[in-house]
Amino acid sequence: MLTQLLRSSISSALPILVAALGASFTQTVGKLNIAIEGTMLTSCFVSVYVAARSNSWLLGVTIAMILSCLMSLFVWFLHRYLRADIFVVGLGVNVAASGLVVLLSSILLGSKGTIFFEEIPKIPVLRFEALQRNETLRTLLSDYSVLELVAMFVVFLSWLITKTPLGLRMRAVGKNESVARQLGLNVDGIRISSFVFCGLLCGLAGSMLSLPLGLFVAGMTNNRGWLALVAAVLGGENPLGVLGVSLTLGFSVALSHRLQLFTALPAEIVLSIPLILTLCVVLIYNVLKIGEKGGSP
């Protein structure tokens, strides 16, 4: 039971983690992109639709990633070149996306409700035969879908990027833009690259929600984008911090699923559990941080 809960925590945490890392890139360069929720939702739809039409999940993921990359660049473009408030633009993308996906699904598929894609290609699952004998190990370490493994690899890659010169430059731009300019860094280029990463990661995160289920609903992301933002804000630039917070959030999402299945708690209350837990995490984190400083803020 506990191991299963852990395992489903990992699975629930992965999309949040991937999106959070994306947001964290934009936060590192000092321009937090809050369009995560909308970007994820759009790629949820696009990936599953393209996968069903082309009969290739890989193509679905790829197209979704490219598209969400464009969305992310759209936010950057409006902010940088039309001086729009990046925050309001992010809200706008979230609102627009929630309309867009329903519009698309009603035009392309003639339905607005839950859409099942029956002919969707199955995503291969990796089994480790060696682990099959031990129940606990099997639950925890085996039977991950390729998509999940890709996500883990991507998480690793993001961590690596922070170790490259580009990662260093991103931090410098975010911390002190004017110094970065003085040193002749290409500030715009660095920021664009962080938005590209953000888009790619959100695209992947969105695909991870819809593809394995082979279905799409308008409320599919269910605030996961916002949870990812919280993880990014709390974790800061440290990918390990983001990892930690995301796992906690994943756990609370998994827990709420369990509660929905195994208890008589009303669905509305269960749905709000991840948010409440997140708020608690945030509070505890902030209390500890202030305690550490040992003084008035």
Partner: peptide, 23 residues
């Protein structure tokens, strides 16, 4: 004009990082 949050080392090479492969 230093970035306070970075280390001395990172400040010294910011913008001119010697790299091997990508790192």
């Amino acid at each position: 004009s230093l970035v306070d949050e970075l280390t001395v080392f990172e400040n010294l090479f910011l913008g001119r990082e010697p790299r091997r492969l990508f790192f």
